[in-house]
């Protein structure tokens, strides 16, 4: 198999490894019903997944737990903007400004 063909094969397999988990229960639907306890528990999946992705991204620098960093300041600014304003773009502007501002100051 040529390197080119091998690369496209890996794309297709990664694609399957993505679409099958995504489509799994959406396609199975009523044929496989999860118990209602599990369904209620799964309502917490989005909050848990979002936190699991965001927390290490913001609070870990390199390999170390280092909560006081410019990213955390940017996050605080973004959350404050979201809390005190209804403008949907403001959190992005506030967060990026604080992050880049602190980095420019050498923080």
């Amino acid at each position: 198999m040529s390197a080119e063909a091998g690369l496209w094969l890996s794309f297709i397999l990664i694609g399957l490894a993505t679409t099958l988990p995504r489509a799994s229960f959406i396609v199975l639907g009523n044929r496989v019903r999860l118990p209602s306890v599990v369904q209620r528990a799964l309502r917490y999946a989005p909050a848990a997944a979002l936190a699991a992705i965001v927390a290490p991204d913001v609070l870990v620098v390199g390999a170390d737990f280092a909560p006081l960093n410019p990213k955390l300041a940017g996050v605080v600014a973004a959350v404050a903007a979201a809390t005190f304003s209804r403008n949907p773009w403001l959190p992005f502007i506030a967060g990026m400004t604080v992050l880049l501002g602190l980095r420019a100051m050498g923080g």
Partner: peptide, 10 residues
Amino acid sequence: RFVIFSAAVA
């Protein structure tokens, strides 16, 4: 994680 999401939204 998508298995969990897929089950939740099914």
